[in-house]
Structures are given as C-alpha cells and as structure tokens.
Design a binder for these strands. Structure first.
Length: 727
DNA sequence: AACACCGCGTTTTTT
DNA sequence: ACGCGGTGTT
C-alpha cells in the first residue's frame, strides 16, 4: 500500500503523529483535532509502512463503542481486517489474559464477572454476616472504598489503618469480600484489572512473552487512565516495545472515578525518549465557538497547554437564553428546535446536553408534547435489567454452582417456598464453614437440619439446576439458553405480575434468547461458548435500545455522555450555579476545574451553533430553588455572546458585568418577609461579617448561603443562624 | 408471599 | 417530586 494513501489528507502535525519514528509518543490532541483518525492511521501506517505484524499491536480504549469503531475504521483503511491484532477495552483485554491464564491467575476456569449491582448485593450479604451496621457504614461507601483501593492497586493486606476505626472496619469487610469472591469464583470490574496486573507482575515468563509480543501499544483517551491501568501499561511495555498514547488533559472529566490526569504529566518521565506532538487545529467548530471554549479553559491552572485554532468561518454568536424557570427553558429549546428543523436542520444533528439526568424529564415532556421525536442516552442497559440478570443467573449456575451472586438471585425467583429463615441458615453455614451457598445447601439438607418442607424445597432447587445442566449439555448456546429459560419458571413468574411492564419483561427475556443466536465468540478463545457469552454480557452491557436508533431524533444526554461526539447544533441546559458547576463540586475544594473542563467538552461538541440556557428559578427535588447564572457564562468573552428571547430575537449584547453584579432576578419569594435579601451584608456571631450570595427553601426551611470574609461560604438555616443585617 | 407504607437520597459512568 | 429499598402487616 502507498504511504500517500495513509498520509495524504492529514495536516502536518497529524502526519507527524502518524509516521513518527518508532519511539514512545505522547499526542496531545485538542477537541476536534482528529484524535481517533490519527490513531487509526498510525496503526495502518505501522502495518503497511513499518512492516509491523498485526500480531504485535495492542490498541486499548475505554469503551466497547470506541474499540468497535477503531476496529472498523482500521479495516476500512486497510480494506481488510487486520487479523491477530488485539484491539479492545482495558477490561476486555485484561479479561482475555485472565481467561487464557486462569491457572496462573489463581482463578477457577469458569470464573464469572459481577457488575456493580452484584457487588453491592454481595457486600450487603457479607456485612450482614459480620453484623456491621449499615447505617453507620453505608454499603455504597464501602463499595466505593473497595473499588477505589483496587483501582489504586491495593489489596486489603496492603492497606495500613493507622489505628483508625473506620478504616479497620472497611478492611474487615474488604477482606471478607475478597474471600467470598474467591470462594464463589467471582471477579468484579476493578478486580479484572488488578488481578491481571498481578498475573503479569508475578509471572516473569508470561510477562516477557507478552512484552515481546506487543511491540506496539497504542492507547486512546489516555487522560482517563487510572492508577492500575497506568501500571498495567507500564508493565506490559517491555524494553523494546513502543507506547503511543493520545489524550487531552483539558478533557479529563473522570477524576471523580479515579482517572489520574497526572498520568499524562508523568508519561514523559516514565517512558524514555518520549516525543510529544500537539494537535491543535480544530476541524469541528466555528471560530466563535472555539474562541469561547479556549477562553473558558484558559482559566484552569496546571494545563499542559494547547492553543486550538481553526480555519473555519467566524460563524454565529453563542446565544444565551435566560429562562424564568425550567419550563420556560424547555419551551424555548423546543421552539428553537422546531424552527431550525423547519429550516432544514435534521433532528439528529441536534443535541441537548445537561449536567444531571434529572434535567431530562422536563425536556422530554416538552418534546413529547410538541411531537418532536427524541432519544435519551444512558438509561438502563439491556443486560442490567432485573429479569435479564435473573435469566443469566440460571446460566451462571450451570457454569459454576458456587456462584453465590447467581445463587442468591434465583434461589427464590420464582418463589419456591424457601423462606428467609432457611436462607439465613444457609448463609450462616456458608460463612462459618467457608463454603459456597450451593455447598451449604447440600450440607444442610444432607444433615437434616431443616424442616421437611424447607429441605424439600432446597433439594428441589438443587435438582432443578442439575437437571437443567444435564438436559441441555449437548445443545448449542442458543438452544441451551432457550431450554434453560423455558424450564426455569421465569416466564410464568413474570407472567403472574400484573404490572404494565410485565409484557415488556417477557419480550426482554425473549430478546435474551435472541441475543445468544447472534453471539459469535472467537474460536481462538478456549472457553466454552456459554462462559464466553456470560462474560460478554458483563463486559458489554448492551448498546442501549436499538429501536429508536434509525429514526431521526433529537439527542438528549449528559455532558459526560457527549464526550467524543459532535453535533451541528448544541444546547447546554441548566447553566446555573449549583447545577453546573454542581453544588457537590462547589462544596469540595479543587473540583471546580473539572466542572470547567466538562463545560469545555460540552461547548466543543458544537459544530455550527451553540446555545447556553439557564433558568432563574427551577423546581428540583420538590422545591423551588433560585440560582444565579453559572459563573462559567461570565468567564466567556462577552463579544462572542448574545442574549436571546423566543423567536431568536437578539435582545441586547450581553454584558459580562450583568452576571457579576446584578441583583438576583426579582426578589426570590423564599426570602420575602425575612428582612434579608441576596446581596445583603450580614454579621454572624461566630463567623463574623459576610454577604448572602444565595438562598433556597421557604418559611422556616429557608436557608441562605453566606460568603464570610474569614470562613468561606456556608449554608445556614436562616431561622437558626441569628444573622444581623448590616447596611 | 404479596402488599402497603415509610424514609432516604437525589452529579457525572464504564467496565 | 419521585423512586427505590427495607420493613411491617395481612
């Protein structure tokens, strides 16, 4: 293949990234600078120009969607699929290694993956067994702790409590959880990465084999790597291997789930002779949108620094709409969409972005009323639905009887007369004897521990699973799934429910059977089709609902979900203090920059036209709150903005000062009759002098946010705070 | 074992 | 406001 074919439509920087010599490379790629394109072209260049064998290439992404897209685009470019190349997510690839080397990884051959819901239930069971107070130690927090530690590469044994009781309790649970998972042959998402890291670290020959094999490691969205992922990459990159990563520190929006932006900064030190290439030409947005985004992100400190520029036209100003409330905001957006659509803008070129999912509701209602088709991204995924997980649990028990998560799920689904008492005894026996629930059932029914009725019910369940297994052993995956589900009693169980969703659940179960028909697992993998299918359901939880995919729909999603996508017309909704930046982020120091990056991501999704909307008053969690416009609006150059009203009339050029100093929109009802108002200077007995900057709630529930000269911002209940008004 | 009621939490999401 | 999970009632 001709090199020109791979390089001809690339700019100089892109070209440099694609045909760079074989060294370690860090590509800092700004939004819309052709990041994925460069990655795909690099791989094609390696194969066709540098004569690199596909077998020695490892390409890593974060999502299955990105992996799939990459595979397809490489095949397109090469006009043939590159066999032998490993392209996948961190989890997918690590899982593959664990399956191939399950013995060395000290896992049972049929180990199963649990999702965070399974993990939660398992933790709940363990904590109850240990009699730990869930009020005091919320399961969610324990889960957060354990996953956080695993992401840092730490097992319970590695963690020092320094005599702190809270950490000691967490560690006790962590240890018990590790044991329970080992016993049941279960592996959670974080464990996949951690276990794989340990596998390679502790097996020198294996490590050397893969280090020699993967001469070229390429990583997408590098700014999102966490500690263990980074350690995994370092381990796998051998003496002679080269690592090529692409990322953008300005688009790092997953710090809250462990992503370490520092990994980009460390990269050049940790990998010798790293070349750095910046991709700064943006091909997506108008000059106006890009300048505004640049101005915004410039307010962040500690950037690696990039200056995005574009050849494209100035384009329209960014429109800012100040709505009275969220209803008005939605109406404005829907009206504008209708106008734009009438003028030829396809609906699927329009995106509505918001900070939190709760905001989608009113937008959906308004779109529905107006008869505008829309699609909401990020609902529950197919394989995470309760009835699907029930069905999968039967299959999991066939593969591994000791899978406690699956056992708990279906021991009484459908109900088969096994009561809470019986279950408690099973759990207790399992815990004290260190056996699975399945083994506990065998032990206790054999020992005649239970009343005859309970014992019979448990034995019947054991026999059901055994016979489902026996009778379906020689069937194909599809036939087997069909057989197991039909005989599990799940269909009858769902049918008995008289809810409106029952029909839907039945269809979902049918769809699960259907899914097995379309599942083809790679023949190079040694595991059975069923084991592979089960792993697939955990690792790729399903692509949302495909039904509305082909229709021309307005796209609704959170700002996080929008990363990596682009749309000609973008609305960013709910640009209010407390909402975006979110209240949570404001209360915690140092989290504002990530919020700013999130808006940067949102703004740079827009190709032609961007709207920023906010509501002066919004109904949230039942009560009305009054928010000021987001500080981020004031951070944008005012000559790039215009304030609009319905029908897109420009009301007046937008003054930045408008956001800094203006009085709140009318007098918020919440403060009426209290003698206080937003902007009021006040004195507090212990905090001293300050200014009321915000208020919410009504009557005796009225709370005000006061920015104190000495003590920072605090929310106070007005009635209790005994504030003294100052002139 | 099904149903009613209470109380809590409610930023962002992938695997 | 609203949904979910957990508990208590029939």
């Amino acid at each position: 293949m001709d090199a020109e074919l791979i390089l001809h439509d690339l700019n100089a920087a892109q070209r440099a990234a694609v045909n760079a010599p074989l060294t370690n490379l860090l590509i800092l790629a700004g939004a819309g600078s052709g990041k994925t394109r460069v990655l795909v072209h690099r791989i094609a260049w390696l194969i066709t120009q540098a004569q690199v064998a596909p077998l020695s290439i490892l390409a890593v992404t974060f999502t299955n969607k990105a992996a799939k897209e990459m595979r397809e685009r490489i095949a397109d470019l090469l006009t043939t699929p590159a066999h032998g190349m490993w392209v996948g997510t961190f989890h997918g690839l690590a899982h593959r290694l664990l399956r191939a080397h399950w013995q060395a990884a000290q896992l049972p051959e049929t180990f199963q993956i649990i999702d965070s819901d399974d993990q939660y239930r398992l933790l709940r069971r363990i904590m109850r067994g240990l009699e730990i107070d869930e009020e005091k130690w919320p399961i969610k927090r324990v889960q957060w702790f354990i996953n956080g530690k695993k992401d840092e590469g730490l097992r319970a044994a590695h963690i020092e409590s320094f005599g702190r009781l809270d950490i000691q309790v967490m560690l006790r649970i962590y240890e018990a959880y590790e044991q329970a998972c080992a016993l049941a042959g279960l592996v959670d998402f974080a464990e996949i990465l951690l276990r794989c890291h340990e596998l390679l670290r502790d097996n020198t020959e294996l490590l050397q084999y893969y280090q020699r094999r993967f001469q070229h490691i390429l990583v997408d969205e590098f700014q999102d790597t966490n500690t263990i992922q980074y350690a995994w990459l370092r381990l796998l990159t051998g003496q002679d291997s080269k690592i090529w990563v692409v990322g953008d520190d300005d688009q790092s929006i997953y710090g809250w789930r462990g992503a370490k932006i520092e990994n980009i900064q460390r990269f050049s030190q940790d990998f010798a002779d790293t070349q750095v290439i910046r991709l700064e030409q943006n091909y997506r947005s108008t000059a106006t949108i890009l300048s505004a985004a640049n101005a915004l992100i410039a307010q962040n400190a500690e950037r690696l620094g990039k200056d995005l520029w574009t050849d494209s036209a100035q384009g329209e100003l960014i429109s800012v709409y100040a709505a009275f409330n969220e209803i008005d905001e939605a109406r404005f957006i829907v009206d504008t969409i209708k106008t734009q659509h009438r003028q030829g803008m396809p609906r699927n070129h329009i995106a509505l972005l918001y900070r939190s999912n709760a905001q989608s509701r009113i937008l959906e209602e308004t779109l529905l009323q107006a008869g505008v088709p829309y699609r909401v991204y990020g609902g529950q995924r197919f394989f995470e639905r309760a009835e699907i997980k029930d069905g999968l649990a039967y299959l999991r028990l066939l593969v591994n009887r000791h899978d406690d998560a699956a056992f708990e799920r279906v021991i009484n689904t459908p109900t088969r007369g096994i009561g809470e008492r019986t279950l408690l005894e099973l759990r207790e026996h399992a815990r004290t004897q260190q056996v699975s629930l399945w083994q506990a059932s065998i032990d206790l029914t054999g020992a005649k521990q239970f009343a005859a009725r309970a014992s019979n019910a448990v034995v019947a369940f054991l026999q059901l699973i055994d016979s489902l297994d026996n009778d379906s052993k020689n069937l194909t995956l599809h036939q087997q799934t069909q057989y197991v589900l039909r005989h599990s009693g799940l269909f009858e169980h769902v049918l008995k429910e008289k809810s409106q969703t029952a029909q839907n659940r039945l269809e979902n179960l049918e769809e699960l059977i259907n899914a097995t028909q379309h599942f083809h697992h790679l023949s190079e993998e040694r595991s059975s089709p069923l084991v592979a299918f089960l792993a697939h359901t955990a690792l790729e939880s399903g692509e949302g609902d495909a039904s509305s995919e082909d229709e021309e729909c307005v796209q609704l999603m959170t700002l996080h979900t929008a990363k990596g996508l682009e749309f000609p017309l973008v609305f960013i909704c709910g640009m209010e203090e407390g909402l975006f930046p979110s209240k949570m982020a404001l209360e915690e120091m140092g989290r504002l920059e990530e919020e700013r990056r999130l808006l940067y991501v949102g703004m740079t999704r827009a190709m032609q036209k961007l709207y920023l909307c906010y509501a002066e008053c919004r109904r949230l969690h039942g009560s009305e709150i009054y928010n000021r416009a987001s500080r981020f609006i004031a951070e944008l150059p005012k000559d790039l903005l215009q304030e609009v009203r319905l029908k897109n009339q420009v009301v007046r050029p937008l003054q930045t000062t408008h956001y800094h100093h203006r009085a709140p929109p009318a007098m918020p009802a919440v403060l009426q009759g209290t003698g206080f108002k937003v902007g009021q200077r006040v004195n507090h007995r212990s905090f001293g002098e300050g200014v009321i900057v915000d208020a919410e709630g009504q009557g005796e529930h009225t709370r005000v946010q006061v920015r104190f000269k000495q003590h920072g911002s605090k929310w106070l209940v007005l009635q209790l705070a005994k504030l003294e008004a100052l002139v």
